[in-house]
Design a protein around this nucleic acid. Structure first.
Length: 273
DNA sequence: GTGCTCTTTCCTGCTT
DNA sequence: CAAGCAGGAAAGAGCA
């Protein structure tokens, strides 16, 4: 993952994030998101991983940043894990968007718990430390067992020792990569609304017609599942098209990003569940 | 090692 | 013109 890469993302951020005004949108971020949350939802440490995704997407939407601009799989974690990330973790995980996410989360934590362990001054100081005084990042250590970079876990008490953990997104027991097929992965997102923060949507539930809303985000999730960081919607869609021949999917002519489950797809009908 | 299945990657041409 | 679709070809990866 490239850190602080200069990408099209940067230009899209300039309206809300620049070096002269590092926290211009804190209230927008804070009240724009937390304002529409239920009480328990404003406490990010209790979020499910799908609420974490939802939050990331909401913040991106708020700043009019394309969700596919950041590797969503870097946020494959629940709220508790999210809350343990440091400012630097966010920079590593989301590049230029990291500070926005970090600030939003900190404000949510602050407003949700009404605790002041992370104040604006601390936030700004930490942000400044990493954003403006550090041209490059500390050398990367590697996690012994899996050879993924090690990230420092957030420690808001300066004197406490820094705990290292693997940067690889949380993954339960490594499952058989062939254990789930692409169409099953898509189906599972569709039938479980909590797993589906606006990624794919039923067009006709009874007929099995669905549409990709965030095609690249779905591709990234699929890539994460297969441990393939270079997955794109173009490649995913090629795999989808192979399902036509096997009648797992049926063509939906004339409509972009729209697919339909075929006779050999199982488990998507409500009555089947 | 071999063959099979299921992708993944790359490509060209077409359509929206 | 860009994005998406269609499908051929070849290669990769897991598994029996």
């Amino acid at each position: 993952m490239s850190i602080m890469s200069s990408s099209p993302l940067e230009s899209s951020l300039t309206s809300s994030w620049d070096s002269s005004n590092p926290y211009p949108d804190i209230h927008t971020v804070m009240f724009g998101y937390s304002g529409r949350l239920l009480p328990y939802e404003s406490q990010p440490q209790f979020w499910s991983k799908y609420q974490v995704w939802d939050w990331v997407q909401q913040i991106m939407d708020m700043h009019q940043i394309d969700t596919s601009s950041i590797p969503l799989q870097n946020f494959d974690m629940d709220g508790h894990q999210l809350c343990s990330l440091s400012y630097q973790d966010f920079l590593l995980a989301a590049g230029s968007v990291g500070p926005i996410l970090f600030n939003s989360l900190s404000e949510l934590k602050w407003s949700g718990q009404n605790q002041t362990d992370i104040g604006h001054c601390d936030l700004k100081q930490e942000a400044d430390t990493y954003l403006f005084s550090s041209p490059s990042y500390p050398s990367t250590e590697m996690c012994e067992p899996c050879l993924h970079p090690v990230l420092p876990v957030a420690s808001h008490t300066p004197s406490s020792p820094e705990i290292k953990r693997c940067s690889r997104p949380y993954q339960a027991k490594k499952e058989n990569q062939r254990g789930i097929h692409l169409w099953e992965f898509i189906r599972d997102i569709l039938i479980d609304p909590e797993r589906n923060p606006g990624l794919i949507k039923w067009e006709d539930r009874r007929e099995g017609v669905f549409r990709f809303l965030k095609s690249e985000a779905v591709a990234q999730l699929w890539g994460k599942k297969k441990n393939n960081s270079s997955m794109t919607y173009e490649k995913l869609s090629r795999a989808m098209r192979y399902y036509y021949k096997r009648e797992i999917l049926e063509r939906v002519d004339g409509r972009r990003l729209v697919y339909k489950f075929g006779r050999n797809a199982r488990g998507w009908r409500e009555v089947e569940k």
